[in-house]
Write a protein that binds this DNA or RNA. Structure first.
Length: 561
RNA sequence: GCUCCUGUGGUGUAGCGGCCAAUCAUGAGGCCCUCUCGAGGCCUCAACAUGGGUUCAAAUCCCAUCGGGAGCACCA
């Protein structure tokens, strides 16, 4: 192409631009295209612009038909807009080497994981799989007041269900002595102090960029105070170990921060063996270094903690990991706070951690959301530091992609209304288990003897009004008591007759637990008793996950439509 | 109040000086197909926060304004 005279190239692009935009080419767009494609002309932009202007004028003088005809002759490939393909994948990590990344998932064991936690879990797992490194699960249980002992088991279960593979697990309550040791070293270096001031006063001074009297005491005295603090010489709340940063730092959030505090509440794992509990900025900094973290993915809300932790890294001469701070996720209409969920469970308002009204991983699993859908959702959301809105619709759409092809179809009739059918002998019918995959087989129907069916209350009302209805995959009916058999010609559908789901007398009572906690009651066709999977679609109702399936009763949980 | 992060259709996202009068998905609307209100196909809707500047050329770089968020805990 570069071999031909530039005039011809310009003319082609002008024709193309004209063809795409109603016969009028925009000279600026052509200039951009030429200069972009042929950098050698950038030094002569004035001349080339003039040339383009005149050629565009010529082209625009032609009729749109003539433009298209000429373009079809000289450069037919430019006539079609190129469709760009997009693959969804995460950007590379800065400085990541194959086989040498170490990353972490560091939850506080206050309850099971919820949808919000899944983002950081999936992202870490994705990168670990890409680079083939280590993924450490670290329980950050340094606040004895906010621990649910069951969480130590629930969290790994949730991660396993998500498909997140951790290569190693640490628990911070095993490591208190390590944090004490590093605190001691900081004090020795003059980079930390023991403060016995009233907490309010200490904060107040900090706000005004002022040091408290303890801050400048000599190291020897600090060491004495530290020993006293560690040996029970202070009451809880009467002394703290503080890391010095810059007391006059313009950002108030990173002026001197607490490293250790005294708490009398017994720890679920260590009992009353320890009273001095590290604050996360101390334990996280120490552990991130000792565990060799190369990359840390955390929420943007930790931005200031990263800056605080930098002081510890700098004091010890450690290299900080690469940090990626992703934006906050706003998850609408969902109960996520584990403390609230726990309360409601205790009060009996929620059935448990998997109550479908909550946003826990367990609840999602129970509702029939697949972990692959969650994974895809977070990968497509990326890792930018913009705050984002979580979209249930978006997650459902991805989940539907996964479950639709594998879900067998069944009829569920909510709020059933009975109709007896007259005017024929036995009626037989069959329906595909999955209409897009006939090879999956069929459900076979046969109505004998007294022919009784049930349709939903809603469909019944429409039937009474329209006088006609089609029982899907079975037959047509004309309204009446009893209803009259009206043949089996599906042509009625073309005339606007509705095809509705129905069940026979042999159907099974069924209950579907809805996401708002209510229960949809009705009947489900008996063929479902042979269904091997628990993921099915109730036609014209929605996808559900089966929980219980006996000839007495079927229970299911609503997934989405 | 101070400090930091951040602004592309309703939502998420691509693009990060010219190939963009802007990608893909979701959503909404319409049509086709289908014996489901599922799936599939086609079409349409809808965005570079605003104002300056730099440049032949800005969604992309700079500045200001405005908007959103977070932190300033003896929580994580």
């Amino acid at each position: 192409m570069s071999a031909e005279p530039i005039e011809e190239t310009i003319r082609k692009f002008a024709l193309q631009n004209a063809a795409f935009f109603k016969g009028k080419a925009n000279p600026k767009a052509v200039v951009g295209k030429i200069l972009g494609g042929f950098p050698e002309y950038r030094s002569k932009t004035a001349e080339i612009t003039q040339l383009i202007n005149s050629i565009v004028a010529e082209v625009n003088a032609l009729s749109p038909e003539a433009q298209k005809e000429e373009l079809a002759k000289t450069a037919p490939e430019l006539l079609v807009k190129e469709k760009k393909e997009r693959t969804y994948e995460l950007p590379d990590l800065a400085g990541a080497e194959k086989g040498h990344t170490v990353m972490r998932i560091a939850p506080g064991p206050s309850g099971p994981l919820h949808i919000g936690h899944t983002r950081v879990s999936i992202l870490n797992d994705e990168y670990t799989k890409r680079y083939g490194g280590q993924l450490i699960l670290r329980f950050e249980d340094t606040n004895p007041e906010k621990i649910d002992p069951e969480a130590y088991d629930m969290i790994p279960e949730d991660l396993a269900w998500l498909g997140v593979k951790c290569t190693k697990t640490y628990t911070q309550s095993d490591r208190f002595e390590i944090y004490y040791d590093y605190t001691r070293r900081l004090i020795e270096m003059g980079k930390a102090y023991v403060c016995t001031c009233n907490g309010e006063k200490w904060r107040d001074l900090k706000e005004h960029k002022l040091a408290c009297p303890c801050r400048d005491l000599p190291v020897e005295e600090q060491m004495e105070r530290y020993d006293r603090m560690m040996s029970g010489g202070y009451e809880a709340g009467k002394a703290i170990a503080v890391v010095k940063t810059d007391i006059a730092h313009p950002n108030p959030a990173i002026r001197d921060f607490v490293a250790l505090r005294l708490v009398d509440t017994p720890h679920p794992r260590t009992g009353d063996k320890y009273r001095a509990y590290p604050m996360m900025n101390l334990s996280v900094a120490v552990d991130d270094h000792l565990m060799g973290m190369t990359h840390v993915i955390r929420g943007k809300d930790h931005l200031n903690n990263t800056l605080r932790q930098k002081y510890i890294f700098d004091y010890f001469g450690w290299k900080q990991p690469e940090y990626i701070h992703y934006g906050l996720v706003n998850i609408p209409d969902t109960v996520l706070k584990t403390s609230l969920i726990k309360q409601s469970i205790q009060k009996g308002e929620y059935s448990g951690w998997d109550d479908v009204r909550t946003g826990t991983v367990r609840a999602l699993e129970r509702r029939g959301i697949r972990p692959e859908a969650i994974r895809r959702y977070w990968i497509e959301s990326g890792i930018k530091s913009v705050d984002i809105q979580f979209s249930w619709d978006g997650l459902y759409s991805m989940n539907r992609d996964i479950i639709d092809p594998i879900s067998d179809r069944y009829f569920f009739v909510q709020d059933p209304v009975r109709y007896d059918i007259e005017g024929t002998d036995a009626i037989v019918g069959q329906a595909p288990l999955q209409p897009d995959h006939a090879d999956r087989g069929f459900r076979f129907y046969r109505l004998d003897g007294p022919k009784t069916v049930f349709i939903t209350e809603k469909d019944s009302r429409a039937f009474a009004q329209n006088k006609e209805v089609r029982l899907k995959d079975l037959c047509n009916l004309t309204y009446g008591t009893p209803a009259q058999y009206a043949g089996n010609d599906t042509a009625v559908l073309k005339k606007g007759v509705h095809a509705v789901q129905w069940v026979s007398r042999n159907s099974v009572p069924a209950e579907v637990l809805m996401p708002d906690g209510t229960v949809a009651r009705g009947l489900v066709e008996e063929t479902i008793l042979h269904e091997p999977s628990n993921t099915v679609q109730f036609e014209r109702f929605g996808f559900v996950k089966l929980e219980q399936k006996t000839s007495e009763k079927v229970t299911a949980v609503y997934t989405h439509n």
